[in-house]
Design a binder for these strands. Structure first.
Lengths: 211, 211, 211, 211
DNA sequence: TCTTAAGCGAGACGGTACGTCCGGTCTTGAA
DNA sequence: TTCAAGACCGGACGTACCGTCTCGCTTAAGA
């Protein structure tokens, strides 16, 4: 977590508050909020998810436990906020070049993000937690995965619009074929998903798409 | 966990004992071992991983906690043993028909296993836990995923041998393209990976493979 | 334990806290403290020391175990606090009459306290525990036995002051001669130490003292 | 524990076996029996009663736990057997000299035994345990304290027979007056009960007895 | 002399309690 | 009101022992 601007703050709060009405937030300590998110981020990277406790976050952040419970419903919610804009920063594909180049760039960035970045460690922890906690899984998908997926679909849509991809292409399926193997390597087999892997993935996809 | 024959027992013990030398195990209570694995399985399905505790397993199995700690190093190790032969039972592709039919059948079974079966719930919990615990992840991959992957590679190898797939096909990549999207749907997006999805996945794969 | 006034509370806290500096204690729950001491007292009388566990005390008191461990270093320390003022209540000799009457009264009260009262059961358990735990023994002697002994010595000193006892009397030895046999009967031989026994003890003591 | 002859062995077994019929005992391993008693004795002196466990005794003695449970009903019973003849060895007053000398000698031996000897440590542990376990207390008194007390009474009886003590002396009370203060110092106050203390105790007793 | 049944070392078993950690709630006093 | 601090009740953790139970083995008795 590196940049936490006001926009993001309002978004994240809206999604993680349990009560309906928005919190007053006027009184909320910005200092405490940032310290908590940074402490969570740091502790996850240093000690792993298993040793990430609310008490440790509070202690590291120099904050009372209640201040965490007041604003986030769970440890996972803190991490989601800590992940924050990182998904947007790392994974917003540029609208240039052709589909093929755009896919190579974006999927390469995705693979690097997932496997190498600190934010990727947070992401993996959240996916792991989502396997144990259906409610948290729903929030994570709606707030973080869905927007990303829409940006990814836009790459393909632009390809169709430019005539680089057939109009009858099943975009959802196509995206799963591109993005699925990368996730599979990172989350399941643990094998490296480097540039060469991504390149051949795109090669085969484009060959199949062009028929 | 449904069948716990002697073969499985010896396999699982070899994998979960921390010391190198094989345990005497002659003294080990088979009754307790089965009760523990069944209790873990049942409790996971009933209450989810988050509420699965060693204490609850012991209580449900009518067993002392020490009996669990004596033979398994962690909750995840118990679940791995509980998963046991299920991966083999559900996911051993038959050696018949052509590649295409074999893939349809196996990937369909995989999708159903992951999303619908009780053993699939154990599998998902283990993948989730693996995101938080690198050591456990390594064991899980070596003991459970690797054998499965080899059986899957054999499908493709048979296809190559029969001339149904090109000889220069990158089998690892091909497998990731087939298996990755299914895992992605189940573990990440949570969208259904039904028969139609699998069929179109195979359609596009075979189209691309045949050029 | 019947009365737990503020004085006793401050005394007991001072003696059972392991760190030097006084605890803030302002945050401490008086309700929990009293419930714990009463539960310990009751359980000792009902089940005996052997069956007195921290867990049972916590359960009976409706308190978390940690609340006990936070304020007392051991089961024996809880019992010492539960004994508390009882030693003062039962065993503070009045400053009236002559030595002989005072001794008869006080030693009778001592024998009844040790053998018959509920607080006496706590006292015996603590003496028993002191045989196994030298550190606890030291605390018990300093905090509880020493003040009592001083009150007992005062009886004899008053006797000397009034000319009822010789000035060259070894008061420590004299006290051991009076108090030792009673303890011996209660703690070692288990024989009754009734009024007649105490009376003859005093008879012989006074006869010897007057030469 | 130093000498464990056959007489003692039969006595101790008779008193500690829970079942009515005597055990065959012919099969009993003398090696194991001695190793257990020595291990118990050593561990008590080294680690104190609190850390004396059946498992530790068995491990130290190189013996299975069952071998202990087969022959003794409790840890205290093992210790009683380990104490064994020591009471007789240390505390059998000789039948010579006058009462006064005999008392000085015996009470001095008693004080040294209680406070200084290894067997005294066992004795104190047993008295401590007796405060928590009435059944064990009864056995201890019957088997060990009563015979000692009778030997002690014999000293006084000889004094009466020789005309050194008045015939109307209450021997039980007299004995408590002599032996009680020593126990009190060792078990309760923890103050030293050295030779001078014993001497003055006897002085005062003889003065009172002669009137 | 040869069973054969016991005692034996070993240690797994079902349990109970230990003392610790942390979750999530509540309370206090300062800002 | 929020905040830092931290006590509170609850509950799971992983460990230590309890007392019981089997397992092979050794070993002394009597058939």
């Amino acid at each position: 977590m590196r940049i936490l601007d006001e926009t993001k703050r309002l978004v994240s709060m809206a999604s993680t508050r349990q009560t309906i009405g928005p919190p007053p937030a006027s009184r909320r300590s910005e200092r405490a909020r940032r310290a908590i998110l940074e402490a969570a981020d740091d502790l996850l990277v240093e000690n792993g998810f298993a040793n990430l406790t609310i008490e440790a976050i509070a202690a590291r952040a120099g904050v009372g436990k209640q201040t965490i419970y007041r604003w986030w419903p769970s440890k996972a919610a803190v991490l989601m906020d800590a992940l924050g804009e990182d998904l947007v920063e790392h994974l917003t594909p540029a609208d240039r070049d052709g589909v093929e180049a755009a896919l190579r760039e974006h999927l390469g960035a995705l693979a690097r993000f997932l496997a190498l970045s600190e934010a990727g460690a947070v992401y993996r922890a959240l996916v792991g937690q989502a396997q144990h906690d259906p409610e948290m899984a729903a929030t994570f998908r709606n707030e973080y995965l869905q927007p990303l997926r829409e940006r990814e679909l836009a790459i393909l849509e632009r390809g169709v619009a430019r005539g680089e991809l057939p109009t009858d292409l099943d975009l959802e399926l196509a995206l799963d074929q591109l993005v699925g193997p990368i996730h599979h390597r990172v989350l399941v087999t643990g094998e490296p998903a480097g540039g060469e892997f991504v390149d051949r993935l795109v090669d085969r996809f484009m060959a199949g798409a062009r028929r």
